[in-house]
Design a protein around this nucleic acid. Structure first.
Lengths: 135, 135
DNA sequence: TATTCCCCTACTTGTTTGGTAGGATAATAG
DNA sequence: CTATTATCCTACCAAACAAGTAGGGGAATA
């Protein structure tokens, strides 16, 4: 399951996508329009900035805006930043790989199944962008 | 990510699948062979019994055994029991559905994407059984 | 009737989730 | 230059969950 934080992140990002090229949008505006606790949203946007999804401008007239065009920001990337691994097992994760001690064995049936799931999931999430969320 | 508990569950179930029709297998044996904390394993197996995956026999010579043949126990069912929802959003879950307030809107792009992911995932997990995990 | 093994309740410890509070810092308008 | 606006940063908090532990009760069997 996506955390509440992740759902907030997607709501905020779709708002920013809708207002792309209208200049910076203040946190307070997003919080109000999308009904997200402002301080919590603040930390989420900050994180997305550090991970190069967002850009910000300080002072009056400042706010946040997308660093790239909406159709260049993949859903998969956002999920990884805000929610963590997409795979169901550490030993099949591409970005959060951790070997498990069972990986010693030549074959692990569970791993094979979860690799399939990962591929099917990524096939979708890597090919959908913020634009696709706008409807 | 699957919890450690889920991974224990799959390891225990594959062990039971390997020893299917050899009669009941004691918790202590599974715990030892698969290196799972015995008390923790106990609670997992009990839960799987309550959910009709396992059957048990008490007293000497007792233990746990699969209620159905390995090829009749779906990976999806085990995940749901031991790990919870498979979907990435409550509002797209088949077994753990909860509407979100955003579902008021006619269209939700995120929901659409996550529905696709759910279908792709279930297409795999509903069609793999314990037999597939044995290799 | 003793042993074996499942069954059940309760507790603990550590981490994650979903926040809140308060101020520092930078940019801009006047 | 200074007030205002808005991001940035640190710290804290409560509740929930994860991953176990402890200890005994109760059924079946030899």
């Amino acid at each position: 399951m996506l955390s509440k934080k992740s759902q907030y992140a997607f709501r905020a990002l779709t708002y920013l996508a809708e207002h792309f090229e209208e200049g910076p949008v203040a946190i307070s505006e997003i919080a109000k329009k999308k009904k997200i606790p402002i301080k919590f949203l603040e930390s989420i946007l900050l994180q997305l900035k550090k991970e190069n999804i967002l850009e910000s401008k300080k002072g009056k007239g400042g706010g946040y805006f997308l660093k790239l065009k909406p159709n260049q920001i993949k859903v998969a990337a956002v999920v990884r930043i805000v929610n963590g691994p997409i795979s169901m097992l550490p030993c099949v994760s591409l970005y959060f790989y951790k070997r498990c001690k069972d990986c010693d064995r030549k074959k692990c049936g569970l791993k094979d199944v979860m690799t399939e799931v990962r591929d099917a999931t990524l096939n979708i999430l890597e090919n959908r962008t913020l634009s696709d969320l706008l409807v």
